[in-house]
Structure formats: structure tokens, C-alpha cells
């Protein structure tokens, strides 16, 4: 019961961060927020007893995603324009 409440809170925070990513004008902030969203989904996957999906989310969604996107951002513009 207590873990189900915690899973509901984690998925709600993931939804909030997904909405914030769409409206964000600073791309560096959006990359960091995408990592935070993956962490909250990893919490929900741990509560539903899926360790194989959890290690994929942490290795790809956190490590590889942030490294590749920030490396690509070095050759681009940081702030989006209207």
C-alpha cells in the first residue's frame, strides 16, 4: 500500500517534468530535466518489480542521453528563439 502511494507520487512528478520540458526555452535545462524524468520512471519500475527495464532506463536514459545531447549542444545554440 505504501509503495503504491509512492509510485503514484513519482509518476505525477514525472508528468510535471515532462510538461516543463516541452515549455522550456533553455536547452541545457531541458536535457537535465529529461534525466530527472527518467529517474522518476525508474522509481516506478522498481516498485512494479521490473529490474531489467530499470537498468536500461538508468544506463540509457541518464548516462548516454545526457552525454550525447550535451556533446551535440556544444556545436549549436543554447537558447531557443521565438
Amino acid at each position: 500500500m505504501i509503495t503504491l502511494i509512492m509510485g503514484a507520487i513519482a509518476v505525477t512528478l514525472a508528468l510535471v517534468s515532462a510538461i516543463l520540458i516541452v515549455n522550456e526555452k533553455d536547452v541545457l535545462k531541458a536535457i537535465v530535466l529529461a534525466g530527472v524524468e527518467s529517474v522518476f520512471f525508474a522509481i516506478a519500475l522498481a516498485i512494479f518489480l521490473a529490474p531489467d527495464l530499470l537498468i536500461a532506463y538508468i544506463a540509457i536514459g541518464l548516462g548516454l542521453n545526457s552525454l550525447l545531447f550535451i556533446y551535440a549542444l556544444k556545436r549549436g545554440e543554447r537558447y531557443e528563439e521565438e
Binding site: 529517474v39 525508474a42 537498468i55 538508468i58 541518464l62
Partner: peptide, 17 residues
Amino acid sequence: IGVIPLAAWILILDIVV
């Protein structure tokens, strides 16, 4: 299984940013 990669990600994110 995800605890030690998560602890290593703190330093990686700091260094990259």
C-alpha cells in the same frame, strides 16, 4: 542493481555540465 550507476551519475553530470 541501479544503485551504483545512479551514484556514479552524480559526478558524471557535474563534470559534463
